[in-house]
Simulated scan of single mutants.
Amino acid sequence: MGRPRGFDTDEALEHAMRVFWGQDYEGASLTDLTHAMGITRTSMYAAFGNKEDLSRKALERYTEGPASYGARALQEPTARQVAAAFLDGSVRATTRPGCPTGCLGVQGALATGDPGSDARDALSAWCNEHTSLLRDRFRQAVDEGDLPSDADPELLARYLMTVANGIAVQAAGGTARDDLQQVADMALRSWPPA
């Protein structure tokens, strides 16, 4: 049996998530990561694997933490409430005080080039998965009569994700939370009636 770890892996992963969130996959050097995590490269590799493995674990942590609004939104009783909770959550998550602005998944997918293609593909798959979950929830809403029978669940999900991704990009560019909330509110005005 090996020596017990001399650091808190949960805390180290939190710090790594923030580095990837603020600097994206390619911008986050191993030095940046290990310095923020307070560990050596050897300890990082032993606990988390390589940089790509660490980035996947950081994305999982982001999904369960700052981006958990997505899963909660899906539980709302109406499609409109799902959309409102999703957009409101996007505004709050991308403008959290004390955290990087924007979205780890969106910024990472946009800023990662060919050398980080595996990480970029994982981030794109993450975004697409959330679109699929929204689509399935809106299909349910059509089946239940909560959305009109001619509503297009795929298009509604893509619309919502596009607005949320735009909010993330604008947040990363410094747009204020109140201004982004106005965008979210405006997007909801075009939501189809039940």
Rank of each mutant, 00 (worst) to 15 (best):
M1E: 06
M1G: 14
P4R: 10
D10V: 14
E11F: 02
F20M: 10
G22I: 03
D24V: 08
E26S: 01
L33M: 03
L33R: 01
T34G: 02
M37Y: 03
M37P: 10
I39M: 12
S43V: 08
A46I: 01
A47N: 00
K51I: 05
R56F: 03
K57V: 01
A58M: 05
R61C: 02
T63M: 11
T63K: 14
S68R: 13
G70E: 04
A71P: 08
A73M: 13
T78C: 12
A79N: 05
R80W: 05
R80I: 04
V82A: 00
A83F: 05
A83V: 05
D88R: 15
D88P: 00
G89L: 08
V91M: 04
R92P: 10
R96H: 07
R96A: 14
P97R: 15
P100C: 06
C103Q: 05
L104H: 10
L104S: 01
A109W: 00
T112A: 09
G113W: 01
S117M: 10
D118Q: 06
D118R: 15
R120K: 15
D121E: 10
L123W: 11
S124D: 13
W126P: 03
E129R: 12
H130S: 03
H130N: 12
L133Y: 07
F138Q: 07
F138K: 04
R139C: 06
R139L: 10
A141F: 03
V142G: 02
A151E: 05
D152K: 10
A157C: 02
T162S: 13
V163G: 00
A164K: 09
N165Y: 08
V169C: 00
A172L: 01
G174H: 02
R177W: 04
D179W: 07
D179F: 09
L180G: 05
V183N: 07
M186V: 15
A187K: 02
A187N: 08
L188T: 07
W191L: 12
P192H: 09
P193H: 15
